[in-house]
């Protein structure tokens, strides 16, 4: 076994995943005050619109695509009559569409962050790293979809499943072209960085809003105690 492969394709991913899990927990407990999307729409509305919509739609679909395509083994797709050929074709075409959307969004947002005086003044270096990192990862992904021309189902996908299910096999990455190697490594790095950025907002996507009462009341817990007391 080659040490460099173990380091890059086993140790590094686990390092990033650990930071990801521990970082999120730590921040949620100690720094909930800053856990939000840090919207900059108030400062500049017009230039945000297309960038953010394209980016989010693109990235969320990309996210789902990656989860579905990489984490679920091909044999389950075969059960539904989706051959690996079809799977690759779907991944290819969908990837091109949502990847381009996400990339265009990234570039629009990046331009806004760099050129709009107000957004720049209110933003932080962290915001730039986040967006810059995302742009690199997305650009790498789009490059691979267009020019990679490589079957990831038998190499990258089982390697990622290996990491997720704690039986890493770095050797699976040996035949993979450089473009893919760079893409996955940057993606792990971004994952490790994300708890310390505004990306934490992803995990607060407001799903409960769809089920709750419109008007919320909260009672001072001290008073609740008192009511109980007076009845007893």
């Amino acid at each position: 076994m080659d040490l460099s492969y173990t380091l890059v394709f086993t140790v590094f991913p686990y390092l990033c995943l650990t930071t990801f899990v521990v970082g999120h927990s730590y921040r949620y407990v100690t720094d909930r005050y800053a856990w939000n999307a840090r919207s900059s729409q108030l400062l500049d509305n017009k230039s945000l619109r297309w960038g953010t919509v394209l980016f989010h739609l693109g990235i969320i679909l990309t996210f789902l695509g990656h989860a579905g395509g990489l984490l679920i083994p091909q044999k389950y797709y075969d059960l539904f009559g989706i051959t690996s050929q079809m799977h690759l074709a779907i991944a290819h075409w969908m990837g091109e569409v949502v990847g381009i959307a996400a990339l265009a969004g990234c570039l629009l947002l990046l331009r806004r962050r760099l050129t709009n005086d107000r957004v720049r003044a209110a933003g932080s270096v962290n915001d730039l790293i986040t967006l810059g990192g995302l742009t690199l990862v997305v650009a790498g992904g789009v490059y691979n979809v267009f020019f990679g021309n490589y079957n990831v189902l038998d190499s990258v996908a089982p390697w990622i499943r290996g990491i997720v299910f704690f039986s890493p096999e770095p050797e699976l990455m040996r035949p993979v072209p450089l473009g893919f190697k760079i893409h996955v490594t940057l993606a792990w790095a971004l994952l490790g960085f994300s708890p310390f950025s505004r990306l934490v907002h992803i995990w607060s996507a407001p799903v409960f809003y769809f089920f709750r009462n419109p008007i919320l009341f909260r009672r001072n817990p001290e008073l609740t105690r008192k009511v109980v007391d007076s009845r007893s």
Partner: peptide, 24 residues
Amino acid sequence: SGALYKREEDGIVLVDQERCRGWR
């Protein structure tokens, strides 16, 4: 996020600063 609420005992409407996620 359910960050805004009305206080049951006196009706004051507040934003829970630790639950506001900035959806605006």
